[in-house]
């Protein structure tokens, strides 16, 4: 869906409806971040308790294992670091 702030009125969708899923992924909210989670794979026990706590759905899981935080969207709240019992995530000024 190619709609942006330069689109002309007749290029917008009728009724301002969006008939495509999850178009918000175009918005890289990672720009908001002031602190960045640094993930230490060695320390991680893959308990995955950090994953559902991420308000920005930014900890991808593949085949039951968490991967690196998706910094395109992570806003740097630090909840993941706080819930990790193994010290595998630290928040750093980057």
């Amino acid at each position: 869906m190619n709609i942006n702030e330069q689109s002309k009125w007749y290029e917008l969708t009728t009724g301002a409806e969006i008939f495509e899923p999850a178009t918000s992924r175009e918005v890289k909210t990672g720009e908001w971040r002031t602190r960045t989670p640094v993930f230490d794979k060695e320390k991680c026990k893959q308990c995955l308790l950090c994953v559902p706590f991420c308000p920005d759905v930014s900890i991808p899981v593949e085949r039951g294992e968490r991967l690196e935080t998706n910094l395109d969207y992570c806003k740097g709240c630090g909840i993941c670091a706080k819930v990790c019992s193994f010290g595998a995530i630290t928040m750093e000024e980057l």
């Binding site: 992924r25 918005v27 909210t29 991420c54 308000p55 969207y73 709240c77 909840i79």
Partner: peptide, 19 residues
């Protein structure tokens, strides 16, 4: 629930909705 939403950092609502 997709990335790129504009809830505040640390917002509990986003966590509730994805859950």
């Amino acid at each position: 629930f997709a990335q790129g939403h504009r809830l505040c950092a640390g917002c509990g609502a986003g966590v509730a909705v994805s859950a």
